[in-house]
Design a protein around this nucleic acid. Structure first.
Lengths: 193, 193
DNA sequence: GTAAAATCTTAACCTGGTTCAATATCTTTC
DNA sequence: GAAAGATATTGAACCAGGTTAAGATTTTAC
C-alpha cells in the first residue's frame, strides 16, 4: 500500500514515528477505483473516512425529487466521507462517486477510534484537520452569501485546478448552486471578454 | 468564576478530573459584558476563543462598502471566536458584539496551546467540538443551497430559541443573507397564514 | 418627556437566476 | 458507424429576492 501521500499529509501537522505509521498502515484499506464507480451509496451507514491517494471524486445528495446536489469535490491528498453518518451511525444521505480512475484509502470508524485511543498524536492531527476544514467552510459560507455565481465559478476553478476536465458542467453547476443553463451563459460571457 | 456551564459542556464529551478542571479554570478569564458592547473588534489579531457563560452575542464582518454581514450568533454554552485569525495570527475580519448583558469566558490562545500539550483530553474535546461544528456547518451549506429564505428563517427560529427577542430584524436578515425589507415581507406573509 | 436617530413596514419597479422547450453536440453501445 | 442516450447551448417567459424611497414605529439621548 502506498502510504506516501497520507503520511506526508499527516506529518505536515504532527510528526509520526515508525510505530504510528505502522499502526495507521494496518488500519487502512486500499481500494482501486474506476471512473464512474460508486464508492459510497446513500442509504447505508457510512463506515469509512476516505483518503484520496490518486484521482478525483465527488460527494452529492439526492433530494426527494431525485435531483443530485454536489456538495464536495476531492482530489489527491484530501479526505472525504460523511462525518455525521460515521459518528451517529445513521444512514448517510450522501453518495460518493469516482470522477476518474484512482486509488483511495478507506479508514474504518472502529480502527480510527482505536488509533485515537492509543496514540494522542492522531487526536491532535484530526483536531487540526477538522479545525482547518471548519475555517474553509466558514469562508465558503461567506463567499456564497456575498459573491455572485460568476465569481463563485471563477473561485471554483482556482481552488480545484484540473478538476474541471473531470467533471461534467452540470455537476459543477450543482456545486455552485445554479442551473447548468445558467452556468452555460456565464461561460459564454467569460469567453467573450 | 462560574465554571459550571463550561465544565458540564466539556464533560458531555470527555470526563475531566479535578486537576484538569483546575488547569482550565486558571487559564480562563471571566468578563462581564454589557448590551451593545464590542467584545472583539476587527483589524487586530484574535487572541481568545470565547465561551458564553450567559447572554447573547453575534459575530459579523464589515465589507468594503461598510455593510455588516452577520455570520454567527451564540448563546449560553456556545463557543465563538475567529479560528482563522487565532491560528494564523493575522488580523481578524470579524467583530463580536454583545446583544444582551451577560458573561463570557475568554480562553487565550497561548493558554489553550499549553493545555493541549499537557492534557490530551483537551485535544479530544476540541477534536470533537470542531468535528461537530463542521457537521453543523455542512448542514447549513446544504440548507442555504436548497432552501428558500422563508424556510431558512423558520429554521433560524428553531435553532436559536429566544434569540429573536435580542436581535434586531436587520441582523437576522443579514444572517439569513437577505435584506431587512424582504424579511419584513416574509414575516407578514407568515402572520397571514 | 420630547426630539433625534434608528429600525421596521409598505409599495413600485428592477435583476440574477430559473424553467421550459427546442436544438446541437458529444458519448456509448451494439 | 448508426442509433440512442446523455450533456450542453440558446432563447423566451417567469419568479424570488433586491433596490429605492417614503412613511410609521420604536429606541435612545439629553
Amino acid at each position: 500500500m502506498n502510504m506516501d501521500v497520507i503520511v506526508s499529509h499527516i506529518n505536515s501537522y504532527v510528526s509520526l514515528n515508525e510505530e504510528e505509521v505502522r499502526a495507521l498502515s494496518s488500519a487502512l484499506i486500499s481500494k482501486t477505483i474506476k471512473q464512474g464507480e460508486l464508492i459510497v451509496e446513500s442509504g447505508e451507514p457510512a463506515r469509512y473516512m476516505i483518503f484520496m491517494n490518486a484521482g478525483y471524486v465527488m460527494t452529492y445528495y439526492t433530494d426527494k425529487e431525485g435531483f443530485d446536489h454536489v456538495i464536495q469535490f476531492a482530489s489527491t491528498g484530501w479526505w472525504s466521507g460523511d462525518l455525521y453518518s460515521l459518528s451517529e451511525n445513521v444512514p448517510t444521505i450522501y453518495s460518493t462517486r469516482a470522477l476518474s480512475a484512482g486509488e483511495v484509502l478507506l479508514f474504518p470508524k472502529a480502527a480510527q477510534d482505536q488509533l485515537l485511543d492509543k496514540y494522542p498524536k492522531f487526536e491532535r492531527y484530526f483536531r487540526i484537520l477538522f479545525h482547518n476544514a471548519l475555517m474553509r467552510l466558514q469562508f465558503r459560507i461567506i463567499e456564497n452569501y456575498s459573491a455572485t455565481a460568476e465569481s463563485r465559478y471563477l473561485s471554483f476553478r482556482e481552488r480545484f485546478p484540473g478538476m474541471e476536465q473531470h467533471v461534467s458542467q452540470k455537476h459543477i453547476a450543482s456545486y455552485l448552486g445554479i442551473t447548468p443553463e445558467f452556468l452555460s451563459k456565464i461561460r459564454k460571457k467569460l469567453q467573450q471578454k
